[in-house]
């Protein structure tokens, strides 16, 4: 059995002002194997972040179910950790303090907190900066801390919500390579939301393409590029092929959106 099993998932929101019910995600079925790196890609408003937050247990389900290792998700749990888009680092804590935060919340009992935190900080390559505060770090460094904080609690599944979305293109590419290096060492199942096509292909074993109104899965694409990967695969034919396929999907979404705008 797969590690993450999502069956017939539906999530409705009630708009705060008008009381109108709005369906963010509908009829989503997805299974993710242990150790797999799955990216979820789609244009804005396709419910990809909502889906991820549902797996994190931060959003209530309206229909269907999510199971992890056969256990139903009904709230956050130590088997999952989230890397958020904004680094969401506590500004009054040092790098080490931030990495320790998750451990403190989960009443970590696997040895010394400082030791564990330092280990993770070194893993993401910030060993020298453990006493710095977030405002002293660059955007890329903050996201490394963010990743270290999530890895520290030793989750089964790592959930990432456009973690590099706020970074510039150059840093983003570096962070992608870094993430793969860390992931290959940590051996976690990873669910990674992005709207960047190259990023989605570069990282993934499997790409989930989502469409909108309401958010649903359009296609699941296997990625058979060899690992370990580096930037050179960006120029391979297989990569180009996948990029073309994903572009077609997203273009379709864009044109349907324009149509809606013209009608309205």
């Amino acid at each position: 059995m797969a590690q993450i099993e999502i069956r017939d998932l539906g999530i409705d929101y009630r708009k705060p002002k008008s009381n109108e019910v709005f369906s963010a995600v509908d009829s989503v079925d997805l299974s993710v194997e242990k150790g797999e790196f799955v990216t979820i890609v789609g244009s804005s408003g396709c419910g990809k972040s909502t889906l991820l937050m549902a797996v994190a247990g931060l959003v209530d389900l309206t229909r269907g179910s999510i199971e992890i290792d056969g256990k139903r998700v009904d709230g956050p749990g130590p088997d999952r950790a989230v890397v958020f888009q904004e680094a969401s680092l506590l500004p009054w804590r040092s790098v080490r303090g931030n990495v320790k935060f998750g451990l403190e919340m989960q009443r970590w009992s696997g040895g010394d907190l400082n030791e564990r935190a330092m280990q993770m900080i070194r893993l993401v390559g910030l060993g020298r900066f453990s006493d710095y505060h977030p405002h002293q770090l660059s955007g890329g460094m903050r996201q490394r801390v963010n990743i270290a904080r999530a890895l520290a609690v030793d989750p089964e599944v790592l959930l990432m919500d456009e973690p590099f979305g706020a970074l510039d293109a150059q840093t983003r590419e570096i962070m992608g390579t870094e993430l793969l290096r860390i992931w290959e060492r940590a051996k976690k199942t990873a669910l990674f939301v992005t709207h960047d096509i190259d990023e989605a292909i570069f990282l993934a074993d499997k790409i989930v393409v989502m469409g909108r109104n309401p958010g649903h899965i359009k296609e699941v694409i296997k990625v058979d590029l060899p690992r370990p990967r580096n930037e050179s695969i960006l120029d391979s034919d297989a990569f180009h092929e996948l990029r073309k396929r994903l572009r077609a999907h997203l273009a379709e979404d864009m044109s349907s959106m324009q149509l809606v705008q013209e009608v309205a």
Partner: peptide, 12 residues
């Protein structure tokens, strides 16, 4: 709110 959500994700 992003701090609150982050803390909740760790089961705070």
């Amino acid at each position: 709110p992003k701090f609150l959500r982050m803390a909740r994700s760790f089961g705070a």
